[in-house]
Design a protein around this nucleic acid. Structure first.
Length: 260
DNA sequence: ATGGCACTAAAATAGTGA
């Protein structure tokens, strides 16, 4: 079973790329973030026409999440990590017995802003939801754009990013608390070189210079972890020449795991 | 280094991203 996550930065613009990714990697479950589409405009038929099931919850302009799958979704939770602002940042369902939770964590903009406090508040809601769901189903996978670089090893230059957004102690503490509930970052079970990232700024040739962050994560319960046999970061999708019909790329690349 | 670049809504530019 192949499970993948990808922040696509607009499902409308990235449709060709997502279809090509499905064709090349055949994921059983592909979770998407930043679809930036209201539900009425989601390109549902593009996926159902080729045999996939899709669930999604979106909003105008910002955020939005979706799950594309071979098997139909069971026990769907639409936007379960709720906030006052009703942003569409989460969607979850059960596939082959595994509760898959697709997350687009709040960015936070800057540590000195109200958005940062809101990010911490949102992460507290994620902790509560994750704790409850893990108690109900020990086969669980949290994955998506966490907007947190877990350690200094997950950034291009720890001196530059010290105490900055994505790297602050408070954000990392919240991620540690989440892991302490019984989740494991699957990245660590494989031997990736240092300076392995999943996001690079569009600007300044950041991708070519590998000025990036590792912020797209797959956090598995022990039971799911024990089934994981491989882990891939699909950097090819970041090259303009990869998608035949569309040179525009997401600033994130997909991350994919193989489960027995 | 307060710029880069990309996307959306809207119909010029402003907000957001990380």
């Amino acid at each position: 079973m192949i499970i993948a996550t990808w922040n696509v930065n607009s499902i409308k613009v990235r449709l060709h790329a997502v279809l090509q990714y499905l064709s090349e990697e055949s994921p059983d479950v592909l979770v998407l973030q930043e679809t930036k589409s209201i539900d009425d405009n989601f390109p549902l038929e593009a996926f159902t026409d080729i045999g996939y099931h899709v669930i999604f919850c979106g909003q105008k302009t910002y955020n939005g999440v979706a799950i594309i799958s071979v098997l139909p979704a069971e026990d769907i939770h639409y936007n379960p990590v709720k906030t006052n602002e009703n942003e569409m940042r989460s969607i979850s369902a059960v596939y082959a017995g595994i509760r898959i939770v697709n997350l687009y964590v709040v960015n936070g903009q800057n540590v000195d802003t109200p958005k940062y406090d809101y990010k911490i508040k949102w992460l507290k809601k994620l902790l509560a939801y994750s704790k409850k769901e893990l108690s109900l189903n020990q086969n669980m996978l949290l994955l998506g754009d966490f907007n947190i670089a877990p350690t200094d090893d997950d950034v291009f230059d720890a001196d530059v990013t010290k105490d900055e957004i994505l790297c602050s102690d408070k954000e990392r503490d919240m991620l540690s608390k989440l892991l302490a509930l019984g989740f494991h970052d699957l990245f660590y079970d494989y031997d990736f070189p240092s300076q392995t990232f999943t996001w690079w700024d569009y600007r300044g040739g950041a991708f070519q210079r590998n000025i990036g962050y590792r912020i797209d994560l797959l956090l598995a319960s022990d039971q799911v972890r024990s089934r994981c046999t491989n882990y891939f970061i699909d950097k090819k999708t970041r090259h303009k020449s990869w998608c035949v019909n569309e040179p525009r790329t997401s600033d994130h690349v997909p991350v994919r795991v193989l489960l027995d």
